[in-house]
């Protein structure tokens, strides 16, 4: 039993598209310990999925090395494959198949006996609430049901390490919450090491013990969500005024903190927001400046991404 589940050094993937070389992943050094829940966060095209594909033996690296569950992803593919679970962006279960059949054949593929595969399939059907649809053709299932079936497929052999590629893309908020709940439960109950990619900030924030921010194929930050926020982005204080005049006067009393102006609001970034607001308000009071609304927001991972790259991840995703 090793305690390091994933170790990569200078992992690199280059693609040649129309005679142009694209570096999808550039010299990535990662380390994931047993039992961790790690999110790879970054905009579309940042190299998250390419990284995952290399770690799951789907794609050979151009250079660098990666060891997963103690085995090299290039020279010991079979050993790696037997130890990991993978839930890709698509549907693991064939659309012309029935869910239960696919679960059983998936179990057989991982070396379970027919009886064990059947029993395990039933367990997962129960725990993922698939009883009503398990014996129907997969193509007739709803998006949320299919996603739950994908999870069941990935868990059939109770892997020690599970990869999820954009698990909640395309799901409505309710199904997303439901899926996240399953991931959290599986992590808590079985101590499964989980690596997931996501471009949803709240998902990374809610699920991960550790967030690895990737941009243009490079690791740009790697820490707990709390530390990332504390280190890279302060609290956001938003002050709203009734008039241009009030706002202009208030600008002279921001305790030396630079304030960004939009319309009738001022936005300040600083640590210890709550405490600071009290000081600010006292200063405004003394100067006779009337503030019509005050809001203090804890930083989000988007603020972190913005601080690190100068771009907003939220806008990148919409673009």
């Amino acid at each position: 039993m090793t305690d390091t589940m994933i170790r990569t050094s200078a992992l690199t993937k280059r693609f040649t598209v129309k005679k142009e070389t694209v570096e999808a992943v550039r010299g990535l050094d990662l380390r994931v310990m047993r039992g961790e829940m790690v999110a790879l966060l970054g905009p579309n095209g940042a190299g998250k999925s390419t990284t995952l594909r290399m770690l799951t033996t789907l794609l050979p690296p151009t250079s660098g090395e990666a060891e997963v569950a103690g085995f090299d992803v290039v020279t010991r593919q079979r050993e790696v494959r037997a130890r990991i679970g993978y839930i890709g962006q698509g549907n693991g279960a064939g659309h012309s198949q029935r869910g239960r059949d696919e679960l059983i054949s998936q179990g057989r593929a991982y070396g379970l006996s027919v009886a064990d595969a059947r029993r395990r399939a039933q367990e997962l059907i129960d725990s993922l609430d698939l009883g009503a649809v398990a014996d129907r053709v997969v193509s007739s299932l709803s998006g949320g049901q299919r996603r739950r079936l994908d999870i069941a497929m990935g868990l059939i052999h109770a892997p020690e390490l599970l990869f999820l590629d954009e698990p909640s893309t395309g799901l409505d908020p309710q199904n997303r919450a439901n899926l996240q709940e399953h991931v959290v439960r599986m992590h808590a109950e079985h101590g499964t090491t989980i690596v997931l990619t996501t471009h949803y900030l709240d998902e990374a924030d809610a699920l991960a013990d550790r967030v690895i921010v990737i941009d243009h194929g490079k690791l740009i930050a790697d820490d707990t969500p709390e530390r990332l926020k504390a280190d890279h982005a302060g609290d956001r204080i938003t002050l709203t005024f009734d008039s241009e005049d009030e706002l202009r006067r208030a600008e002279g009393h921001t305790l030396g903190i630079t304030a960004a102006r939009t319309g009738l609001t001022l936005t300040l970034r600083a640590d210890g927001g709550r405490h600071l607001v009290q000081k600010l308000m006292r200063g405004f009071d003394e100067a006779g400046v009337h503030v019509s609304a005050v809001e203090v927001a804890r930083p989000t991972l988007d603020d972190v991404f913005l601080a690190l790259t100068g771009r907003s991840l939220r806008e990148e995703n919409q673009a």
Partner: peptide, 14 residues
Amino acid sequence: EMQTGSHERMLVSP
């Protein structure tokens, strides 16, 4: 199956 994803799932299996 390559388009829907089950081929990929089988490629990752042992």
